Simulated scan of single mutants.
Amino acid sequence: MAQAIELHGKVQSSVNVENIHVINATAQKFTITDKNGAFRIPVKLNDTVSFSSVQHEPKDIIITSEILSIKTISVRLKEKINTLDEVVVGKILTGDLSSDIGNVEEELPINFYDLGIPGYTGKIATQSERRLAQAGEFKPIMLLGLLGGSMPLDPIINGISGRTKMLKGHVQHEKNDTLLKRIRIELSETLFSLNPLEEEFRMDFFYFCEMDDNFYARCAGKTDLEVLEFLQEKLKTYKANQILKQN
């Protein structure tokens, strides 16, 4: 009974069962469910296995001798219900101009869909991305423009002044910031259940991760397992730095 076994399990729910976090904090092991809700994780007697996701209420299972003997488990999770603030439909006029002006109905501006005109439906660029596009970027092929006297000057000027490099930095910072927010929401609970860190240091730790040159490459488009591996590596370094500062 003291030996670890590989537990085969399946999560059931009325909503999506893929990518649910399965954590054995006792053994410091972590995995996620596949598209069918199936998972495998090493356990021992009396280990606590936790299940969590943004769509479900968290749930803990204590590993009993019965579970160890059959080596399988089925877990049903409840969908997490998010309550919304009360919404009032329709306009409410009180007679007070300062408050009623915000409740007056107005017609929406006509767009290209209304007129049957094809329009851009892709991702809307951020302000930094628009500025970078306007600044342009110097490419060697532009030198051919010298022959015809039509070489664009903005990319050269912005390249020499460093403005293009600065704008690229702003665009990357926005991408890092968006990615970091998603990681904090989806992985904080799992990370700190496996690797405890005082609440007051957690935000500082995530900024420490963002400063890593490999942060975006290691985390963007990666699975939770891959991201968690990166976070655990950085947390070891962060804690080691804290010890050095204290000494």
Rank of each mutant, 00 (worst) to 15 (best):
Q3G: 13
Q3H: 13
H8Q: 12
G9T: 04
K10N: 09
V11D: 01
S13T: 02
V15W: 02
N16Y: 04
E18W: 09
N19C: 04
H21A: 14
I23C: 03
A25E: 11
K29D: 12
F30E: 07
T31Q: 00
I32M: 11
K35G: 10
K35V: 15
A38T: 13
F39K: 02
F39R: 03
P42Y: 09
V43F: 03
K44D: 07
L45E: 11
N46H: 15
T48N: 12
T48L: 15
S50A: 15
S52C: 04
D60H: 06
D60S: 13
I61A: 04
I63N: 00
I63D: 00
S65K: 10
S69C: 08
I70F: 06
I70Q: 12
T72N: 13
T83C: 03
G90V: 02
T94W: 01
D96R: 10
I101D: 02
N103G: 11
E105K: 12
E106A: 08
E106N: 07
E107R: 06
L108W: 09
P109H: 02
N111Y: 03
L115V: 13
G116E: 04
P118Y: 02
P118H: 01
P118S: 06
Y120L: 07
A125M: 14
Q127S: 10
S128Q: 11
E129K: 05
E129A: 06
R130K: 15
Q134P: 00
Q134T: 09
G136K: 01
F138Y: 09
K139V: 05
P140H: 00
P140C: 02
I141M: 04
M142C: 03
L143T: 06
L144A: 13
G145Q: 05
P152I: 04
I157A: 11
S161Y: 06
G169N: 09
E174M: 06
K175T: 06
K181G: 03
I183H: 08
R184I: 15
E186A: 07
L187D: 07
L191Y: 04
L191R: 03
P196D: 10
E199V: 14
R202S: 03
M203C: 06
F205I: 10
E210S: 12
M211Y: 09
N214L: 12
F215K: 01
A217F: 09
E226M: 05
Q232L: 10
T237H: 10
I243C: 11
